[in-house]
Amino acid sequence: MVKSNYKDIYVFVEQRGGIIQNVALELLGKARELADALNEKVCAVLLGHAISNKAQECIYYGADTVFCVDAPELETYLTEPYAQAICRIVNDNCPGILLLGATTIGRDLGPRVSARLETGLTADCTALAISDKGDFLMTRPAFGGNLMATIICKEHRPQMSTVRPGVMQKGLRDTQRKGKIENVSIQFDHSKINKIRIIDTVKQEKTRIDITEARVLVSGGRGVGNEEGFKLLRQLAKTIDAQVSSSRAMVDAGVMPHECQVGQTGKTVRPDIYFALGISGAIQHLAGMEESKYIIAINKDKFAPIFQIADLGIVGDVKQIVPLLTEKLKK
């Protein structure tokens, strides 16, 4: 492998049901920034079936070139056909960097591809940067968010990384941007693909809303205690048009569903206002919400670690304060 032959930043543009996922747009925004620092190009890798009409969108969000593979084998995500398509594009074009979203798809595809290409992969990054020497620095939390580690991949290419959704900012959609669309056709190895068949894809009740999209989050922890306590939080959320989220403790206790969990093993959020109610502030929770613009914490324990990162701290009982707050806001 000749390292200098590898250049440009490639982004796997994840689509589900033909809809480009937000994380892909966030990655295009970040890739643009990194590519400008390296004086290289941003290339989008768009895989799917009947998705060619989405290629232009990738250009609007920062891509210079879009490699588009439109094939029935790629209609719904499966590891093997997607891995074959990406590896073909990598082997033909030699990217320096390859970015994927740290979604269930990206975290399934990334390691498979990295093993096939025999290169390094850094999972769930929260920061990406180019050093003065031109090294690609990938920073990620480890030990449940207790430690941050900056990883490099010196001798292998492409340098691969998955990035958590919601961490990077997507760029502005610029319909004046120009780029090139390259349609790639692929001969799939069906003997490998045929080992897995999708029987059914079941969407579960959308009672939930995506907490990463919320402007205001009312989040509860152990101090809220139970279903009854969360009722108070829901009433508050309703009055100020907020969503309800929670710490891991309440998900483990079965009070809240996993998709509402904020933290290292849950979601990363950055709302305008984050209410941390009865949340002590374990590091794995802080890892998922510390980028919130304004944090209001209420906790009985004035030594709770949450107060170290909160902007406004109230020492008190959530169950007393929250109903009063809701009542007064209604007036």
């Binding site: 025999e118 390094g120 992969l121 580690a149 004035k302 170290q308 109230i314 020492v315």
Partner: peptide, 24 residues
Amino acid sequence: SPTRVAKSFTKGLKPASQLYEVSP
């Protein structure tokens, strides 16, 4: 191993917030 840890660090502590111990 293609990857190496270049450095590791904890995020450090933020200055303490405004803390109020007042009535509800």
